[in-house]
Amino acid sequence: MSDEHPVLSICMTCRDGREAETGARGGSRLAAAIYAQISEQTATSVTLRGVKCMSQCKRPCIVSLCQVGKFTYVFGDLDPLEFAHPEALIELLGRYSKAPEGFLARMDRPELLRPNILGRFPPIRSASPLVSRLDPVAAE
């Protein structure tokens, strides 16, 4: 895995309630849809990886986007059958790659993903004004 490319992690064990009719978990179907979309776009530099569980069972299907020195994003409630979700993730990757520290305000993210965000976490050594050091308060 290269530190110079974003990493898109996809929970492979997420269930979307269609397992009986499709024969596969929602997470694995979402991963296949994302892989197919990204494979068609050779200009997209990203590492895709499957994760056995991302502990967000109440909000499946889950993905996270991270890169060394950049913010990490977690999105849930993605529908493996919704063709627009993989497209929105590819659009997000392009914006993320160009943004300083990968920081994307709500309005900078693809509209389809805005309500699906579960978390935005700063890199350890962030220069972002969103992050400040908390010094212990002296006990009175």
Rank of each mutant, 00 (worst) to 15 (best):
R25M: 11
R25G: 09
G26M: 05
G26E: 07
G26T: 09
G27S: 12
L30M: 13
L30F: 14
A32I: 02
I34W: 04
I34Q: 08
Y35W: 07
A43K: 00
A43T: 07
A43D: 15
S45Y: 02
V46K: 09
V46H: 03
V46R: 07
T47A: 07
R49C: 05
G50N: 06
M54L: 15
S55R: 07
S55Y: 01
S55E: 13
K58S: 09
C61I: 10
I62Q: 13
S64M: 11
S64P: 07
L65W: 02
C66P: 00
Q67Y: 02
K70F: 03
F71E: 07
T72E: 08
T72I: 05
Y73A: 14
P80W: 04
E82Q: 15
P86V: 10
P86L: 09
E87R: 14
L89F: 01
L89P: 10
E91C: 07
E91R: 12
E91A: 15
L93M: 11
P100R: 06
G102C: 11
G102D: 06
F103I: 03
A105P: 01
M107K: 14
D108A: 15
D108C: 02
R109S: 10
E111Q: 14
E111C: 05
P115V: 10
G119F: 07
R120N: 12
I124N: 06
I124M: 12
R125F: 09
R125P: 00
P129I: 04
V131T: 10
V131I: 10
V131G: 05
S132C: 01
R133D: 08
R133H: 00
L134W: 01
P136N: 02
V137Q: 07
A138V: 10
A138N: 02
